[in-house]
Design a protein around this nucleic acid. Sequence first.
DNA 1: TCTTGAACCTCTAGCCGCTAGAGGTTGTAG
DNA 2: CTACAACCTCTAGCGGCTAGAGGTTCAAGA
Lengths: 137, 137
Amino acid sequence: MFSIGELSRRTGVKVPTIRYYEQSGLMEQPERSAGNQRRYSVAALERLSFIRHARALGLSIDDIGELVELAADPERPCGEAHAIASAHLSAVRARIAKLRKLERELKRIVGLSDAGCLGECSVIHSLADHRYCASEH
Amino acid sequence: MFSIGELSRRTGVKVPTIRYYEQSGLMEQPERSAGNQRRYSVAALERLSFIRHARALGLSIDDIGELVELAADPERPCGEAHAIASAHLSAVRARIAKLRKLERELKRIVGLSDAGCLGECSVIHSLADHRYCASEH
DNA sequence: TCTTGAACCTCTAGCCGCTAGAGGTTGTAG
DNA sequence: CTACAACCTCTAGCGGCTAGAGGTTCAAGA
């Protein structure tokens, strides 16, 4: 049985965040001590590790909620879990693609400015008018 | 003189967003009609285009606020504007690097699951235990 | 056994960048 | 002159926490 602080130390998830996960239904309500303090089992520790890892991979609270449910039900987990993970993979790839475009554009804008500050500022100039952009965004 | 709706149409920024920008100090308070409706000048149109473009590049409201001020003051814009843009470029690059790690990890997890669903679900299995991860996150 | 004081409790509000809705007023075309 | 779209202000909500107020409990040392 761990206190919330000990659970926090062991998982690296901050105390208020653990309470937030409980409030949003991601963590089960734990037992309480005589004085109303939370007392966690090893199972709760494992669940929180799972959540933390999935969050680190960028999955939403909702997605993780689904995965937690699937994990608890060995009858039908695999296909649905796979779908959630691969949908997320697509989303991550889309975000990478978009950020790469931004990177190119910013590089161009910053590079112009490096080339010499004659007259007006080219950073501000580039930002002011989309027509000077190399690509869409 | 444009109404807020016309400004919205011309810039592609939604009406409530324009009001939000005004409230947060990014757009100046415009003139008003006799009946208290906003009336925008061409200068306001240009400013909003600037803001929209900078937002599309992912700059924060605060950063854009600074840039707008710099743009209005031709005495000292270039170096500071450059600093803001290149700091943002670094941030974008860092985000790309992080997302690429996630992509690799997710690909691995999803790939495992594709390889065959024997016994337990490997997606859930991989999420449950960080030790199976190829890299840090 | 008593006393600290760190850790815990609940509740509320704030962060960013919008978005949505209620409930009321104005502008404009027919 | 009427109808109705567009406008107005105000408040609240989204996700995923984070911070603070104000009060209680636990555990170690004297």
